[in-house]
Simulated assay, not measured.
Amino acid sequence: MSIPVVDFGACSLSEEDVADEKMHKLSKELESAFTEVGFVFLKNTGITQKEVDGVMAISKTFFLLPEEEKKPFSRENYANNEYHGWQQIEAERFNSRHPGDLKECFNITSFHPDIKWPSGALKGFKEIQSSFFQRCKELSLRVLRVMALSLGLDPQLFLSAHRFIGTESNGTTLRSLYYPPVNHEKVKEHQLRCGEHSDYGSITLLFSSSEGLQVQKRSGEFIDVPHIPGVVLINVGDLMQRWTSDHYVSAVHRVLLPPAGDSSTRQSLAFFLQPDDEAVITCCDGSNKYPPVTGGDFVLRHFTATSGEK
């Protein structure tokens, strides 16, 4: 099994208006990837490597600040949104049986007027992150449209449940992740940069600076995900698997430690697309395989179960 690379040029963000007929070939390619692997590489999306590098650069500037300068932006300091903000290393564990993950992150979840953003040496942090959030949102909506067509559904079906992205009524998150150098002498047993998990929501867009990610095959074996500059890796979330009555699969994945003696860092940007909190999700094939659930309730339940400190 390998993760296919699909040319998304017909639906690129550089295309202002995309007719459904242009999506037919794409829809079959995405359906194949999402039913067999749960992951796909998309090239020619309209999001450039330069854009990605810019977000990673401003994010790394933040992560390299002294801890006391990052603490004011910790998640617990945002009363308007408990998921927005910075998390320190080992504060989160995706595999609850293992030690905290060796990563830190900054979640962009809210654009509430009262949100405090890093400034000073981080001039442009809000603007760069906000702009990239919007770019990922637009690409995600195009992917959802193609996914609906691949299932023979109304192309608006998935879109209609994602109308409030970027508001307090939707939990979609742009997460900047930083994996610092690893001191193997201090690593705890079973500790990873990111423990085994599947994503909770609709789909995830992932941009990374290097290798390290692994995806689990249906056989249980993990395979290495190659690093391909200029592409976006997209995977199905748990809710989308449920939404499609298990037609699309949400695959488990993880980020390994670097080899002993390798002091390199790693960065990634993950855009976790969630349905609106009040959107009622029912099996799109008309079956009763899973009972109806709201987007907010489903994601909260899984978020709490999978993340160690929540």
Rank of each mutant, 00 (worst) to 15 (best):
Gly171Trp: 09
Gly195Gln: 00
Cys284Trp: 03
Ile165Ala: 03
Glu196Asn: 07
Phe111Ala: 06
Lys186Phe: 07
Leu42Pro: 10
Gly286Arg: 03
Glu221Trp: 09
His98Leu: 06
Glu221Lys: 15
Asp53His: 08
Ile234Thr: 10
Ser268Cys: 10
Ile115Gln: 07
Phe164Met: 07
Gln49Tyr: 04
Ala305Phe: 05
Lys137Asp: 11
Leu206Cys: 10
Val6Ile: 15
Arg135Phe: 04
Gln156Leu: 09
His253Met: 06
Ser59Arg: 01
His162Ala: 08
Lys70Arg: 13
Lys43Tyr: 00
Gly237Asp: 09
Phe106Glu: 01
Asp7Asn: 15
Ser14Gln: 12
Phe272Ala: 10
Val215Arg: 03
Pro258Met: 05
Val6His: 05
Glu67Ser: 15
Glu67Ala: 14
Pro292Gln: 05
Pro4Val: 13
Cys283Asp: 03
Ala305Val: 01
Thr48Val: 13
Ser119Val: 10
Met23Leu: 15
Ile115Gly: 04
Leu256Lys: 12
Trp86Ile: 07
Phe8Tyr: 09
Asp199Cys: 11
Val5Ser: 11
Lys137Glu: 12
Phe41Gly: 10
Ser287Tyr: 02
Gln241Trp: 00
Glu82Val: 15
Val293Glu: 05
Gly296Lys: 11
Asn107Val: 02
Glu67Arg: 10
Leu256Thr: 14
Gly286Lys: 02
Ser130His: 08
Gln134Leu: 14
Asn77Pro: 01
Pro226Gln: 10
Phe133Glu: 06
Thr282Gly: 01
Glu67Gln: 14
Phe222Cys: 04
Glu21Asn: 09
Gly195Glu: 00
Asp114Phe: 05
Pro4Asn: 08
Pro258Cys: 10
Val236Cys: 14
Trp86Cys: 04
Ile108His: 02
Asn95Leu: 01
Leu239Lys: 06
Pro181Thr: 00
Thr173Asn: 11
Lys186Arg: 13
Arg242Val: 14
Ser268Tyr: 00
Thr172Phe: 06
Ile234Val: 15
Thr306Met: 08
Pro292Thr: 07
Glu104Ser: 09
Asp277Ile: 04
Tyr200Glu: 06
Lys310Ala: 09
Gln214Glu: 15
Trp86Gly: 05
Asn44Cys: 09
Pro275Tyr: 06
Gly38Phe: 09
Ala270Thr: 09
Leu151Ser: 09
Asp114Arg: 14
Ser59Cys: 11
Leu213Ile: 13
Leu149Val: 13
Gln88Gly: 15
Phe39Trp: 12
Met240Trp: 07
Pro4Cys: 11
Pro258Tyr: 03
Phe207Arg: 03
Val252Cys: 03
Ile234Trp: 00
Ser119Glu: 13
Asn170Ser: 07
Ser176Pro: 01
Ser140Phe: 08
Leu122Gln: 10
Ala79Arg: 14
Phe62Pro: 03
Phe222Thr: 04
Glu92Ala: 02
Gly261Asn: 11
Leu153Trp: 02
Ala79Glu: 13
Ile58Ala: 05
Ala121Ser: 14
Val52Ser: 05
Pro226Thr: 11
Glu21Pro: 01
Leu300Cys: 09
Gln88Val: 06
Glu16Phe: 08
